[in-house]
């Protein structure tokens, strides 16, 4: 009969309409009041129907692998030896692998010898150009650049706020572990330590333990022949205490305090010299 198809379709919309009220009764209309708990109900796994997220009052949490404009990892302030130090070694792989070429890095040089030091002097990302592909984080051999979860970067003036410099990009290591606990753990397993590769290497030298036959970390990209420069800058693979021990948060500090103090002092001096050279 003409019109049955139409009626069947309208029955469906009617059912959807009624269902939304059944859902309301089931949750006692709590879906509509704005609080964190109710948000969990409204957007929860059991809820039927589409309910508007009242952005920006409410936000859907993003999954761990979510990627937005990158940030640089610096060591936490309470780190015993490397507080405030960049994880980045300015090897330049992120700048090369960046599809829209939005990363600019000034490689650090030792003012005395002129030799490159494993620390960037400056680091810029033009977030207008960044396409959030995540390659920089994926191919960084030092786990030093990561994709952020903070997507609210709008500003009133794009000409002054949209080139992020090193200061703006830097975030502590603990932040990364808080936004991506699983991946930070996986990286640790690949690296063999919770510490930066360089730190682990130094620690190992201090220990003078004979563990040179440790396996190479699996996550490291094989350097292409043309990238000799980075290959030289790449430190030897880090050697771990047993990953399980490292996973507990135990840090393999073993060198003696005097040596460590001495190296830290030197590093700070170098940093100060560079700062003076680059005009503060």
């Amino acid at each position: 009969m003409y019109g049955t198809g139409l009626a069947k379709g309208l029955m469906l919309t009617l059912r959807h309409f009624v269902d939304s009220y059944i859902d309301d009764i089931r949750y006692g209309f709590r879906k509509y009041s704005h609080s964190v708990d109710n948000f969990g109900i409204r957007q929860g796994t059991q809820t039927k129907g589409v309910i508007t997220v009242q952005y920006p009052d409410e936000k859907v949490a993003v999954p761990e692998r979510f990627r937005f404009v990158p940030f640089l990892i610096v060591e936490d302030e309470d780190h015993p030896t490397r507080a405030g130090k960049d994880w980045c070694t300015s090897c330049g792989i992120c700048a090369k692998v960046c599809p829209p070429q939005c990363i600019w890095i000034v490689r650090g040089n030792d003012p005395d010898t002129g030799r490159p030091v494993p620390e960037p002097e400056a680091f810029f990302i033009d977030i207008d150009i960044c396409m959030n592909c995540g390659y920089c984080a994926e191919y960084c051999p030092f786990d030093a650049i990561k994709m952020d979860h903070d997507y609210e970067l709008a500003s009133y003036d794009r000409t002054t706020h949209h080139i992020h410099d090193k200061e703006r990009l830097s975030k502590p290591n603990s932040y990364w572990r808080s936004i991506a606990p699983t991946r930070a753990y996986e990286e640790m397993l690949a690296r063999g330590t919770w510490e930066h590769k360089d730190a682990a290497k130094e620690a190992r030298r201090g220990q003078s333990a004979s563990r040179s036959s440790a396996p190479r970390p699996a996550a490291k990209a094989a350097p292409a022949p043309a990238e000799k420069e980075e290959a030289q800058a790449t430190p030897e693979p880090a050697v771990s205490a047993a990953p399980a021990a490292a996973a507990d948060g135990a840090t393999p500090w073993s060198e003696d305090d005097a040596k460590r103090e001495e190296r830290r002092r030197k590093a700070l001096e170098r940093k100060a010299r560079r700062a003076a050279k680059s005009g503060g």
Binding site: G92, C98, Q101, I105, R107, A122, F124, I163
Partner: peptide, 15 residues
């Protein structure tokens, strides 16, 4: 790509 101006002396400019 990669462009030479990005590294090691990567001084930024706006397009």
């Amino acid at each position: 790509k990669p462009f030479d101006s990005r590294w090691p002396g990567g001084h930024v400019h706006r397009a």
